[in-house]
Design a protein around this nucleic acid. Structure first.
Lengths: 184, 184
DNA sequence: GGACACATGTAATCGGTTACATGATTAC
DNA sequence: GTAATCATGTAACCGATTACATGTGTCC
């Protein structure tokens, strides 16, 4: 998913500034779709405006710098909805943690335990974040569904880690470098 | 994860050609870590050789074009193992499917049903692939652990989709465009 | 006769990140 | 004083994809 589509998706939810779009893409609901940095968002927004997909209004603020609030146009909204109707690309899961797990035999139990804890902390952080976003979906059905999905998914992961993490540590321990060691 | 590290990771498992590395990265065990295309793999391999991380031998074949088989060196292996010992980057899950789910209210039940089926098919395909790779881990503990993880994760997803997919279809159905419609 | 698997590689292009540039306000 | 939050934007750079280029054998 490109930054362009991401901006459109977020603006289809409501007006936002470039700054807010970035926040929503790294935290919040939209972190399931893509991360984006300022360096890609601002140019994307400018291009979308030139194409007539969004409009801007500048809002002066006391003390703070002026903010540019973007709104999606009908044209932008229909392009976005049309893009959702096309067959979606496959979901992806990329896991640096599983790479460590794959090489557990060569890594020593301490490294494995740390990797496990790190992954666990990540999951707990995501869980807290989802739990904290309850207001977002007091009425919005779609938000509620994906929130429940995220909750179930993270709880599954946490549970799996807790139940099978020790097995992974044991793989590292049992085979510190020389497989035959324990064969007496 | 860069293509460079991906090549090192795959070669740490055993000798391979650029062609095989690509296959392993898009299918197989390594699809959890990163996808890579030929255009990035071949240059990466050449660079790794120049750096002394891998060695090459050319194998002539009858009929087929010659293949360049790469092997990891001690230097390459220790760089790779060292990289696994550093704190890992967070795991990511990117879901075009959830984006459709988020906008279910605006999409109509047919579109939702199709997205659900598509996601379901993807999961089943991944499940079959994991099940088909049983030989890879008849003895290798790390492979077995991540295989079991993948199996559990995919089965969880399949189960969730089957149990809650109808709710999502209902969100689309109940609110075709005008919220008040059913209010008598 | 056409598509696909095997097999390697380069060049054009693109999409994105990182660092830079600027600047006020608030909290520690 | 110094870090963080708010706020926008550009330029250099980089990593990767896509398309191109080449060629054989096999299956339908």
């Amino acid at each position: 998913m490109s930054v362009r589509s991401l901006c459109l998706a977020i603006l289809a939810f409501g007006d936002a500034t470039g700054y807010e779009i970035r926040k929503e893409s790294t935290e919040g609901r939209f972190s399931y779709f893509d991360d984006a940095s300022f360096g890609s968002i601002y140019p994307a927004l400018a291009r979308l405006e030139a194409e007539g997909m969004v409009t801007v209004r500048e809002e002066q603020q006391q003390g703070k710098p002026a903010r540019k609030v973007y709104s999606i146009t009908d044209k932008g909204r229909s392009e976005f909805i049309a893009s959702l109707c096309e067959p979606q690309a496959p979901d992806t899961f990329k896991s640096p943690f599983l790479l460590i797990a794959l090489y557990a035999e060569e890594l020593g139990p301490d490294v494995i335990r740390r990797a496990l804890n790190r992954r666990r902390d990540q999951v707990i952080a995501e869980l807290k974040q989802i739990e904290g976003s309850a207001e977002d979906c007091h009425q919005h059905q779609g938000s509620k569904w994906i929130r429940d999905y995220g909750l179930a998914y993270m709880n599954f992961t946490l549970d799996y880690l807790d139940k099978h993490g020790d097995d992974l540590v044991r793989i590292a321990r049992d085979e510190p470098q020389h497989p035959q060691q324990a064969a007496e």
